[in-house]
Amino acid sequence: MIRVVRGNPTPEELAAALAVVRARAASAAAVPDTAPPPPAQWSDPARIARATRALPGPTAWARTYWPA
């Protein structure tokens, strides 16, 4: 529903404004939505970085070595 809030448009002005609104609505509806779907929560890379890492300290060198 469209309502004139200010002014006093002539019938021709109102018809022209309505034609523009209807044309824009029709063109927006005709364009297919090509946006990719949002990624799933489990594949979000930010999920991995949520845990805080331990700050380096005097024994930080020991945590970098993985014995075979």
Rank of each mutant, 00 (worst) to 15 (best):
39 P>S: 12
53 R>P: 07
24 R>A: 00
34 T>Q: 09
10 T>M: 05
3 R>A: 12
32 P>T: 05
42 W>S: 08
54 A>Q: 10
52 T>Q: 13
3 R>W: 04
16 A>S: 04
32 P>Q: 05
22 R>H: 08
53 R>T: 11
5 V>H: 12
19 A>H: 03
50 R>F: 07
45 P>S: 03
35 A>V: 03
11 P>M: 10
62 A>E: 14
15 A>W: 08
61 W>N: 09
49 A>F: 14
42 W>R: 14
1 M>V: 05
27 S>T: 08
63 R>L: 13
62 A>W: 10
55 L>S: 12
44 D>V: 00
60 A>E: 06
53 R>Y: 05
10 T>D: 14
46 A>E: 13
67 P>V: 08
43 S>H: 11
2 I>G: 07
8 N>R: 15
59 T>P: 01
45 P>E: 01
7 G>M: 01
53 R>F: 11
36 P>V: 01
66 W>G: 11
39 P>R: 02
28 A>W: 03
68 A>G: 10
56 P>C: 06
28 A>S: 02
10 T>H: 04
23 A>G: 02
24 R>I: 01
59 T>N: 15
48 I>Q: 09
32 P>W: 04
61 W>G: 03
46 A>N: 15
39 P>E: 06
52 T>G: 14
32 P>D: 05
21 V>H: 08
3 R>Y: 12
30 A>S: 12
35 A>H: 10
16 A>M: 07
28 A>P: 00
42 W>L: 11
34 T>V: 13
57 G>K: 03
5 V>S: 10
39 P>V: 10
57 G>P: 01
30 A>F: 10
39 P>M: 09
20 V>H: 04
26 A>Q: 07
29 A>L: 08
44 D>N: 15
30 A>H: 02
65 Y>A: 09
44 D>S: 02
42 W>Y: 06
45 P>K: 01
15 A>K: 03
15 A>S: 12
14 L>V: 00
31 V>D: 00
67 P>M: 04
12 E>K: 12
33 D>E: 01
68 A>P: 02
33 D>Q: 05
19 A>I: 00
34 T>A: 11
21 V>E: 04
22 R>P: 00
18 L>R: 03
37 P>H: 10
63 R>S: 11
24 R>Y: 06
54 A>S: 07
33 D>I: 01
40 A>C: 11
36 P>T: 01
57 G>I: 01
56 P>E: 07
59 T>H: 14
20 V>D: 01
21 V>M: 15
25 A>V: 02
4 V>S: 04
65 Y>Q: 10
4 V>A: 03
43 S>D: 08
54 A>T: 10
38 P>W: 06
61 W>L: 08
